[in-house]
Each structure stands twice: as C-alpha cells, then as structure tokens.
Design a protein around this nucleic acid. Structure first.
Ligand code: FES
Ligand code: FES
Lengths: 145, 145
DNA sequence: ATATTAAAGGATATTTTTGTCCTTATTATA
DNA sequence: TATAATAAGGACAAAAATATCCTTTAATAT
C-alpha cells in the first residue's frame, strides 16, 4: 500500500509532531532511532518533505525538524501524496491510461469504495491527534522485538 | 496499490477467463495485445501463475493459456497474493515488524477497515463474473487512446 | 517421423527504489 | 569571530522491479 519511503516518512512526521507538542526540535538521527528507520534514507525523505513545506527545519545547534501552526493544515494524505504521488487516489488501479467512469475497468466500482476508505483513513485524524495517541501510549511508532 | 506485474496479471487472467468462456485457449502474444501489456514480461507472469495453478497452459499448436472448472475456486485475491504477496492483507502497513492488536501503530484500526474493503473488492465477484462483464462490454481490459 | 507451434526456462539489460557517504551551507553559542 | 552542530545537496552503491531475448521442451498436425 505504501512504499518504504512513505512508511518511514509517516512514522517520522508523527514523531516530529509528538516532539513538537513539547516544543522540541529533533534531529534526523534521533528520529531515525525512535522510529527504527535507516538514518541517511530517512534524512533524504525529511529533506523532501521540508521542500514540500509539510514540515519545517532549522540548521545549526538546537536545530532540527519541527512543526507548528503553519503545518496543521497538512494531513497524512498530503504526506502520502508528497512521497508516493497521487496513485493511491487517482488513475486506474489496473493501470489503464486513465480512470474512466464511462469506460470502467473491472475493478473501477469497487476501487472507488476502497479509495473512499483510504481517504478517510488518511484524513479522519490530524497528525497532531495521531501524535497525541502515540504520546499517551495508545499507539506506537516502532516495536523493537 | 498493485505492482505493474500484478496489474498485467489481473488483466491477463480476466482475458483468459473471457476466452475460456468460449473454450478458446489463448497465446501470450494475443493476451498481451488485448490487454495492452509488454509481451515477454506478461509471459513471465503467466508462467508463474501456471506454476501456482491459478491458470492452466498447454504447449504446442492449438496450445495456450486457459482456465476451467478446476480454476473456479481462485479469486482475484489469490491472484494478487500469488504475484504481490500477502502484504496488502497482512503485516503492519506502516512497516512495523508485525501487525499487533495490543501494540498497534497509528493507522492500525483504520487499516483494518480498509483491508476489509480491499478483501471485498477482490473476492465479491468471481473471475468468471468479471470476464462476463468484459464480454458484455460493461467493463474493459484496455483502452487504446 | 518431421515440422511447426507455443510455453518454459534462463541469461541479461534497464529502470526504479532503497540505502550510504561525503562535502557544503547555515545557525547558535562560547 | 571561531567552533560546533545540524540540515542540505550531490555522488555513489546495492537491491528490487520491470522488461527483453534466446534456447529448450512439449504438444499438435501433417
Ligand atoms: S477505470 Fe480502473 S479504477 Fe477506474
Ligand atoms: S500494527 Fe500497523 S497495521 Fe496493524
């Protein structure tokens, strides 16, 4: 469903949100450790997300990645589109040159239903809410077993 | 959602079902042309599906790929698992080492809902039914525009 | 029997994804 | 102003997915 880059990205950004709840900026190394992802690769993904304004960053000592009010408008969906592109939501899922209502592929009708639920999954809760659920221990971003 | 191999595989197998409705075996070349997929790559995928018994094949003149009663038990889900593996249905979709109910990732609950609908999409109709819908012109396996 | 046809198998090439490493630019602090 | 810390950028490496081609095997038809 998601590429590895996207999985790392989602986990990282929720971690950044979690730390930003307490006004902490976090470095790529700390992020990678806490979400159990390869550090240099994760750093590249975060770089890209900064370029796309989904998160913020600051160089130098006390620097790192962070989010604030300006980032609250972004959802997991934006994140997924930023990394994996819109393929999960647009285009024919059987690879035909376009998704067409008048000339549908065999999966088209069901795909629409599934896409509705994927969209719900990625927009129902804000990234801040997801971070709070991690903070409270309700959910986890890594499992070291 | 699906790899290219899987997209080609789905389109090809539905085409094979469609032709088998009229007891026609079909060659890799004909299949690839009708579903608009690269021929040698498609042939490889079909080879693999024959190994996994999802479809049948015969060598020699009048040979080709086909399906019969013995294949009616297979659904799109089996096809997808045969090509892409079970990742769409099993394991943590955020890439944690396992999918866990007691230690869930932030998406776990919603992922379960989405998976239910994906499963429905891939099992609600038989491959034969999907082939009949193509036969009747209700749906299409390729669009050359 | 022989020729022909089509799938099976294996080797190889290309592209994309995943991952690493090193240098440069920017910022904070002493 | 010098130093240290950190992100940014670019080059490179490895692995996986995508795609092609050639040889071998099996079946049919003549
Ligand atoms: S035409 Fe294939 S998903 Fe819409
Ligand atoms: S724990 Fe991540 S999907 Fe279940």
């Amino acid at each position: 469903m998601f590429s590895k880059a996207c999985q790392y990205g989602i986990r990282s950004v929720i971690y950044i949100w979690k730390q930003s709840l307490n006004n902490n900026k976090v470095g790529a190394k700390e992020i990678a450790e806490h979400v159990d992802a390869p550090e240099p690769f994760t750093a590249k993904i975060l770089q890209e997300l900064v370029r796309k304004k989904v998160i913020g960053s600051m160089k130098g000592p006390t620097g790192g990645f962070y989010v604030d009010k300006a980032h609250e408008k972004f959802t997991l969906k934006d994140l997924v589109v930023a990394i994996d592109g819109p393929g999960l939501f647009e285009g024919c899922s059987l690879g035909l040159n376009q998704c067409s209502e008048t000339n549908p592929c065999p999966l088209h009708t069901e795909v629409k239903v599934v896409r509705t639920h994927i969209l719900h999954m990625l927009t129902a809760k804000s990234l801040k809410q997801l971070a709070e659920e991690v903070e409270s221990g309700e959910t986890v971003l890594a499992r070291f077993i």
